[in-house]
């Protein structure tokens, strides 16, 4: 994970909640799109492909491409279709389980 990000928030700041991404603790804007919020704090890649292990990140932001998959409660989910909520525990999808999207 890069400490810096090439995605900048231009909107008004909203209140933050704490979520965990792997072993890091992140402060993200409550209720905002999860994929967007992760991009701003420098999360990249989101996952690695189960076939070649190539890195991937958000591509379509509209729930069609599945490149922004993250693992939440053991289930691979599209980060771009989720909202930030307090206490989310996010993992990179395990390569083995990446096919169960």
């Amino acid at each position: 994970m890069k400490p810096d990000s090439t995605f900048r928030e231009i909107g008004p700041q909203t209140d933050r909640v704490t979520v965990r991404f792997g072993s890091s603790e992140l402060s993200l804007p409550r209720g905002e799109n999860l994929a967007g919020a992760l991009l701003v704090v420098g999360v990249m890649p989101f996952r690695h492909t189960p076939l070649s292990g190539a890195p991937r990140g958000p591509f379509c932001m509209m729930g069609a491409c599945y490149d922004c998959l993250v693992e939440i409660d053991g289930i691979n989910r599209q980060a771009c279709m989720l909202q930030v909520t307090e206490g989310l525990q996010i993992e990179r999808p395990s390569i083995k389980g990446a096919g169960n999207a």
């Binding site: 928030e9 967007g36 991009l39 990140g57 932001m61």
Partner: peptide
């Protein structure tokens, strides 16, 4: 086109509309 950091132009617009997020050095 599969590299992280490559997105559709529509995706950039969605980020801007919904989240107020702009892509730098794009």
């Amino acid at each position: 086109w599969t590299l992280p950091g490559v997105m559709t132009a529509g995706a950039a617009q969605i980020l801007l509309k919904q989240s107020g997020i702009a892509c730098e050095r794009a």
